[in-house]
Each structure stands twice: as C-alpha cells, then as structure tokens.
Simulated scan of single mutants.
Amino acid sequence: MSEGTMQRRAQRADQSVQRASRLHRVLAGAAAVPLMLIAAGCSSDSGSDSAAKEGSESPAGASASPSPTVEAAAYAKLPEPCAVLSKKTLEELVPEAGKSGKEGNSDDISARASCSWDSLDNNGVKGSQFRWLNVSLLRFESDVTRGAGDQRAQEYYEKQVTDVKAVEGAKNTKAEPLTGTGDQATAVRYDLKKKEGAFKQQTVVVRVENVVVTLDYNGAGLAGDRTPDADDLMKAAKKAAKEAVAAVTEANGTGASAAPGASKSPSKSATSSASPVKKS
C-alpha cells in the first residue's frame, strides 16, 4: 500500500470520529430539551395551584360577626315628680302639706326624680297626726353592654326587696304582691319605733316597662295622739302608687288606659329607694 493511500484512510477515520462526536453532542442537547420543558411545566402548574388556592380564600373580615344590638327602652322620659299625684289624693294623704311638695335634687330629671310632702295636723293638748309621703321615679335606658331598659329596671326592682324588708329596727314586716298596677308591683308594711312615736310605714314599688316607681308613706300619732291604722295607710298608698304609674305612661304619650293592667308574674318582694320615715 502506498504512503498516499494510507494518509487518506487516516484522514477518513479522523473525519468519522469527528462526525460521531458532533452527533453525540446533538443527541445529548436534544435529550435535555424535554427535561427543561418538564421542569418549566412543573413550575407553571405550581404557580397555578398557588394562585387558585389564594383565590379560594375569603377576604379578611368577611366572616366578622355583626355588632350587638338591644331593643330600645319603651319610655324616654319621666313626668314632673311633684305633679304625679292629684290635688285630691294629696289632700287625703297629706292634708296639711300645703300647695306643693319638695322636689329632690337630680343631675338628670329625665332619668331620676323625686318629690316629698309632709303634714302635721296639730290638735293641741290632744296631740297631733304626722304624715310623710315620698314618690321616687327611676328610669333605665337600654344599653348593649348592660341590657334592655326593662330588664335593668326589673333587676333594680328585685334588688331592693331585701333592703326594704331589712330596715334596721323594723317590726311586724309583711310583704304582698299587687295586681292591676304596672308590670310588677309589691307592697311592704312594717312598724318602726322612734323617739317621736310609733310609725306605721307603707312602701309600694312598681315597675312599669323601664321605669321603677317607689312610693313611701308613713304616719304616726305624736304627743299622745292615737296611732294611725296601718290598713288605712296601705289602702291610700296603693291608690297613690297606681296614680303615679298612670302619670308615667301619660308623660310618654301612651295614656292612662294603656298602662299595664295586671301583673303577669307579681314579684314576691318590694323595694324602697327613699328613707322609710322622714328624719326630724
């Protein structure tokens, strides 16, 4: 074999090796393309899942609870306290009281008010008859944190029961539920001995909607005069309490005829927001 022939064969072998090397690189590159596509596809799907998950979440605050509410109180004001009783009633209970009563101090007369009267019928050497009458009015507003007005009034009404029945020095205490006066009503009576004489105390407490009316009425025979009859005093006190309740309903535009006529569940107790007897 000539030297030229050997050189040509060597060149062809070298060219074959180079072509094989190029083909290997092309195949290797082609194989890498699907892997890149698969990786890109996985990345794209992951983003879609994340976006879908984010889209399914509810906006912040969407499930927040609504603000609490409470029913508005039925009565928005109180009557003039010294005008809740008629002239005729005052003449019967406190005949020597004069033309007007003494209004109590209050920083808000639409929520808290009171009026008192006292009467001394002097019979000279035979002694004298003393009477003291007080009407207190307390109105409760509805409040989302403390409850509806009528509920708050009921709680106050019931809370005072223990206090009125536990007056220091009280004797022969008796309590009775009343019907036909407001939504709830209770009357308490007891005897109280003081240096001036023996007092007969009558307390009538009524809740009408979101207002509590407390009427205190007591009498005594002084300087040797006879002690008044407790039954007579209680009868007069009940009548006056019913009249005061009617004044509350009328002041709020509902009229006396709209006042609740009977207690659905009369309280077993009574309350008193004023002192049982006038202090001398």
Results as ranks from 00 to 15, higher is better:
H24Y: 04
A148L: 04
T203C: 07
E168Y: 02
T179S: 12
M36Q: 06
S269T: 04
A153L: 03
A153W: 05
W132A: 06
G4D: 06
G224N: 14
S128G: 09
E155L: 07
G29D: 08
A175L: 08
Q202E: 05
A97K: 11
L138T: 13
P79R: 02
S21R: 12
D231T: 09
P66K: 14
N252P: 01
A51V: 02
K88Y: 05
A256H: 09
S110P: 04
N218G: 03
G147L: 11
R12L: 10
Y75C: 10
V26N: 01
A83K: 15
D231S: 15
V213C: 08
A72Q: 14
P228Y: 05
R8Y: 03
S273Y: 04
K242R: 11
A262Q: 15
F130D: 01
A236D: 02
S280H: 06
A111C: 07
R25D: 13
L178I: 06
Y217K: 04
Q11G: 07
E196C: 02
S275L: 13
A31F: 00
Q11T: 05
L178A: 08
D121Q: 09
A270Y: 03
G180K: 14
D216V: 13
R146L: 11
I109F: 15
S272P: 02
P177L: 06
A62R: 10
L192Y: 10
G41A: 09
N172S: 08
S48E: 13
D232R: 08
G41V: 00
D225I: 02
K88M: 07
N123G: 08
R112W: 10
G29H: 04
E103G: 08
A20P: 00
V17L: 08
S119G: 05
P66R: 06
K238G: 00
S263L: 01
K239T: 08
A97Q: 12
G224P: 06
S128T: 03
N210Y: 08
T69K: 12
A13R: 15
K268D: 04
A244K: 05
R146V: 02
L215E: 01
N210I: 08
T186D: 02
D150G: 03
D121T: 11
V70F: 08
V84W: 01
A258V: 03
V167A: 11
S46N: 07
A170S: 14
P266Q: 06
K200E: 01
K264I: 02
M36N: 01
A13L: 10
G61L: 14
K279Q: 15
K264A: 15
E250C: 11
S16M: 11
A30N: 03
M1C: 06
A51P: 00
A97R: 14
A270I: 01
K171G: 07
K77C: 13
G29Q: 09
A83C: 09
F140M: 09
G4M: 09
E176A: 15
V164Y: 01
M1Q: 08
A241L: 06
F199Y: 11
A246H: 14
Q18G: 06
E92V: 09
P66Y: 12
G124H: 01
K126M: 09
G55S: 14
N105W: 13
Q201W: 05
L233H: 02
